[in-house]
């Protein structure tokens, strides 16, 4: 099939970006979206031009490194799907596709479609863990966790840290990302001890890093590849208020 691509090109943070037009004639419906970009890059390289820089690694939807806006939607038209898992069968011959980086103040563009999401690591560093050193752990079955609690914690823990929630939010809020970790750990008995401190530190860090506030539009869950629930945000708010009241 023939695809008319409009791709965001930007040399670095300090220069202005623009959309560049490329026509691809031999796109196969079975190709993944990233393989289509590989095809474009091979073409550009052969012409002596700079290939489009884009983020990707595992290409099986779990590492969270890929992610672009496709026709204005984070990770493209398929629900709960990362960019790497999107295939060209979701498009048709003659389509025009706009490809842009995830845009947020806290995610500066590095080049073309690549953005810096290290702010997510900083949020985790502020408290997204249980403070246990190697060697301190008690026998695993001494901590009983009911099946449903464990499954619910897993649902929160499944976040892949891709940043689609931030990119899609009109406020560029990281509430879904931050809350999924806070609520995973708050749901587990071994994580409850530090919950107040963790919640306050992570929320403060999130704000310091320039992410916006959550205004409950729930757009984040819609475009989340793992379908992380916005109820995590409710739990984060609950944990936060609880921590503040305690003081």
């Amino acid at each position: 099939m023939k695809i008319d691509l409009k791709v965001w090109r930007q040399k670095n943070q300090n220069t202005k970006g623009h959309l560049e037009s490329y026509i691809l004639d031999e796109v196969d419906a079975e190709m993944s979206f990233l393989e289509m970009l590989d095809m474009l890059n091979l073409k550009l390289a052969k012409r002596g031009e700079r290939p489009v820089e884009f983020d990707h690694d595992c290409r099986e939807g779990i590492c969270g490194q890929c992610g672009v806006m496709i026709n204005g939607i984070a990770h493209g038209p398929l629900k709960n799907t990362t960019t790497c898992q999107l295939h060209m069968r979701s498009f048709k011959d003659g389509d025009t596709i706009y490809v842009e980086p995830f845009k947020a103040k806290a995610f500066p563009v590095i080049r073309d479609l690549k953005v810096d999401r290290s702010a997510f690591d900083d949020i985790i560093a502020a408290g997204g863990y249980i403070s246990v050193n190697t060697g301190q752990a008690p026998e695993a079955n001494s901590i009983l966790i009911s099946h449903d609690e464990a499954e619910s914690a897993f649902d929160s823990a499944a976040c892949i840290g891709c940043g689609a929630c931030v990119a899609t939010c009109k406020n560029a809020s990281a509430a879904l990302f931050t809350s999924s970790k806070i609520s995973q750990l708050a749901k587990l008995p071994q994580g409850k001890k530090e919950s107040s401190k963790r919640t306050v530190n992570m929320v403060n860090r999130m704000e310091d890093l320039g992410f916006g506030h959550c205004t409950n539009t729930e757009a984040c869950q819609v475009e989340c590849p793992q379908d992380i629930s916005v109820l995590n945000i409710a739990q984060m708010n609950y944990e936060y208020n609880k921590a503040k009241l305690k003081k």
Binding site: I130, V132, P138, E139, I145, H147, A150, G191
Partner: peptide, 14 residues
Amino acid sequence: DQAVAQGVPFGREY
């Protein structure tokens, strides 16, 4: 033991 202490949500019985 270590992974459970870290909060890794392993599959559980009821």
